[in-house]
Amino acid sequence: MEQKSWKPWALLAPSLSAVFFLLVVPVCFIIVYSFWLRAPTGADIPAFQFGNYAKFFEDFFYPSILLRTIRVSLETVALCLIMGYIPAYFFYRTETRYKPALLILIMLPFWISFIIRTLSWINILGETGLINHVLMKIGILNEPLSLLYNEAAVLMGLIQYLLPFMILNIYVSLEGIDKSLLEAARNLGCTEWQAFKEVTLPLSLPGVSAGCLLVFVLTSGTYLPPMILGGPGNDMIANLIFKRVIGTLDWPFGSAISVLLLALLGVIVFTYNRYLGINQIFKSLQSGGE
């Protein structure tokens, strides 16, 4: 028995060490920093005060960026869900022998740098980009459309980044549905649509909710699409953190905003886990890696 008791810990030690040193320790640093003060030169002054948190809520400016982040995240989730369910359902139902190849296509974007993928939209949406070029060439437009540096372009950048996460989550959930249930529904008189509505859709909801959570969390923390594709008014909370930490060397305030974002996402993940179970996400991620 004694021999058994240390073995799991020995096996877990590398993972636990990685989590401790690469996650717990940095988060603790951020929390400690959030109470410090910043000198005008950029030097940090150790202290214990809540001024950085008070500053965040002293007027509506910072909360408004947080609210914008939540809004854009929800819009991204909705769009990814609409655009992701259909291909996931197709992968589930298709009998083609090319199914593994199709699934690899979903993973393909991850092989290219996220920055390059985001920058490439400039070549597509820009005033001299592909869309404007074609529309002007065929005479539909006389003047190029301004498609870049606005919220729509940011959403486009976010969707191309996050759509595969949504598709994979839904697909894994669909794959777990016993197809004989659908046959039974059809035998009992359901139409194709009714079978989908009454059987497939409810059983795929854990995957849908896992995908939504993952997309929401990742959107909330990303700053590249707003920075590269957004205009002056499209900054999100991660851009604010980036500017405070990098732009003004105000690590204490940047840390306080990070802690607030962490707390918000923590509440959302906790609520999700309480009612739906976090294990669905792990199942999806495992399947994506297989």
Partner: peptide, 11 residues
């Protein structure tokens, strides 16, 4: 710099 960030973002 802080004030500029606010102005730039629309404040």
């Amino acid at each position: 710099s802080e004030k500029w960030d606010r102005v730039k973002a629309g404040a």
